[in-house]
């Protein structure tokens, strides 16, 4: 098991956002966490990446306990979180953003990593010296994912990569996610777009108001009447 989350509970002050959730991601898998607004998806990713401290529960990565570690150490272990809303450094150039993605790596590895990113996102090469703030929404998502790839992730956590994108761009982003996975990176995908997420994922968890209510193989959940009604609009 690559990532194991056990009985994780997280509060914001008096508000309980996650109630003893447990799930896992194996090597080579795409696992998706789907759920409506406010279900706790972002909270889950933030807790794994060390931005939030859980009230109770445990998180293991490659068998090592990581809850309680500072965020930068978790990144060093290969857990990379591409945040909701992309969070580009808008005043910096595309190149500087990508270099920040490789912050934990030796400078010698950077040009190779850049080439790897350009293979998935050729458009970033053309925009290299442009301020990130001038990119389009789709390009920003490419930058956010490219920045994540620069760190050579073992586990790439994506928070709503399809948010606000045109359908054709969503297709493109999802096919790239699949490609990244096929090259050996495990993926934890958080999505409201359950339809797309269940198409590329191997397994899925459904989160409702801070608790996991359904879990299983993605193709099984796709046919589950409850999921169909609540998340696929069928």
């Amino acid at each position: 098991m690559l990532l194991e989350v056990k009985d994780l509970t997280v509060d914001y002050g008096m508000v309980r956002a996650l109630k003893e959730i447990s799930f896992s991601v194996n090597e080579g898998e795409i696992v998706t966490l789907i759920g409506a607004n406010g279900a706790g998806k972002t909270t889950t990713l933030k807790t794994i990446s060390g931005l939030l401290k859980p009230v109770s529960g445990e998180i293991f990565f490659q068998g090592k306990r990581i809850d309680g570690l500072p965020g930068h150490q978790i990144v060093r272990m290969g857990v990379i979180h591409v945040p909701e809303g992309r969070k580009p450094f808008v005043d910096l150039t595309v190149e500087e953003n990508l270099r920040l993605g490789a912050f934990t790596r030796d400078s010698g590895d950077i040009s190779g990593a850049l080439e790897r990113v350009f293979k998935s996102f050729p458009r970033l090469r053309e925009r290299l010296h442009q301020r990130a703030g001038t990119l389009s929404g789709g390009e920003l998502q490419m930058l956010a994912m490219g920045r994540g790839l620069m760190a050579k992730p073992k586990l790439l956590m994506l928070d709503e990569p399809s948010m606000g994108l045109a359908p054709i761009m969503v297709e493109e982003i999802f096919s790239i996610i699949k490609e990244i996975n096929q090259q050996g990176t495990a993926i934890l995908l958080v999505e409201q777009n359950a339809f797309m997420a269940l198409q590329i994922a191997h397994r899925a968890y459904v989160l409702e108001t801070g608790a996991i209510v359904l879990a299983g193989r993605a193709d099984e959940l796709r046919d589950n009447p409850k999921v169909k009604a609540a998340y696929l609009g069928e």
Binding site: S49, L51, P70, G71, H72, R76, L100, F103, T104, A151
Partner: peptide
């Protein structure tokens, strides 16, 4: 410098800087 770049990243947003592996 790399540290200078980290300073610019942190001054933009502490959380996102931490996600880059920067010790804020």
């Amino acid at each position: 410098t790399k540290t200078g770049l980290a300073m610019r990243a942190v001054s933009f947003d502490h959380q996102t800087a931490a996600l880059m592996g920067i010790n804020v």
